[in-house]
């Protein structure tokens, strides 16, 4: 009875911050429970004159209950970096743990996760863009509702909790109202000017619940360079375990 009375009052008193957080939590809740997935990714780097170079990458992701996800990123091309692997343990609070495997030396190298604003393998994606997006890493604010490319969207702003380490002061995100899929993100740099824009295309539904995009395009507004990620071969619940994400797994990567 008490809760029934309280509910409308909370909703009525919802601030833009609370609404923003609620949207982020709902998006996160809808993507919970996938356990693990593997996918192939083609990374296409494009410079201002339009010259392209490509990287073939494999991704393995493990959902971790109560903490951030674990991911393993394996490079197949260019051939000179074949077998290079990047292991990331995302944490809801505090720095991520990251290791890089250098196959020529058989060396597993711990890397500093404070480099999160650094370029991921020469692309327009920073480490912080590709690591798993935990709700706790940002504070939120709902800005407005807007139609984006014919889709009813919430427009929310995200502010990094760890302001010193992030390369951004804020991110503006367009999230579809029907399925809570993210269609577009504007990234603002430390000088508060727009740095990059991410657009997402071709969402497909897996296991009748989890939406994954076929294509993501990150355009750097300041340099004119861009990076396109073309995803394929998504497989969910493949039976990956913690063993597939320990330091030995880096040495086994092919």
């Amino acid at each position: 009875m008490l809760s029934l009375l309280l509910l409308p009052r909370v909703a009525a008193a919802e601030t833009p911050e609370e609404k923003g957080l609620a949207i982020a939590q709902e998006a996160d809740r809808r993507d919970t429970g996938f356990s693990d997935f593997t996918a192939d990714m083609l990374m296409v780097l494009r410079n201002k004159p339009g010259q392209e170079s490509t990287r073939k990458i494999r991704i393995r992701m493990l959902e971790v209950e109560g903490d951030g996800d674990k991911s393993l990123t394996i490079f197949d091309t260019p051939r000179d970096v074949k077998g290079t692997a990047f292991l990331n343990f995302t944490h809801k609070v505090g720095d991520d743990d990251q290791w890089l495997y250098l196959p020529a030396l058989k060396r597993v190298k711990r890397i500093s996760s404070r480099n999160k604003s650094g370029s991921f393998m020469g692309s327009e994606f920073a480490y912080e863009d590709i690591s798993s997006q935990e709700v706790e890493k940002y504070t939120y604010k709902w800005i407005r509702d807007e139609v984006y490319e014919g889709k009813q969207c919430f427009v929310i702003e995200r502010y990094p909790v760890d302001k010193k380490k992030s390369g951004y002061t804020r991110q503006v995100s367009w999230i579809g109202k029907s399925e809570y899929r993210e269609w577009k993100v504007d990234y603002y740099d430390r000088k508060k000017s727009r740095l990059k824009t991410l657009t997402v295309k071709g969402y497909q539904k897996y296991l009748d619940k989890y939406w994954r995009a076929d294509e993501m395009n990150m355009v750097n507004r300041q340099t004119g360079k861009s990076t396109r990620l073309v995803w394929s071969n998504y497989k969910f619940r493949t039976g990956l375990t913690d063993r597939d994400f320990d330091k030995n797994s880096l040495r086994r990567v092919r």
Binding site: S112, R114, N115, S117, G118, S119, G122, G167, T223
Partner: peptide
């Protein structure tokens, strides 16, 4: 010690 994005570039 790593400096990310030195002198406003993408270089580390």
């Amino acid at each position: 010690y790593t400096l990310v994005g030195v002198a406003g570039t993408a270089m580390d």
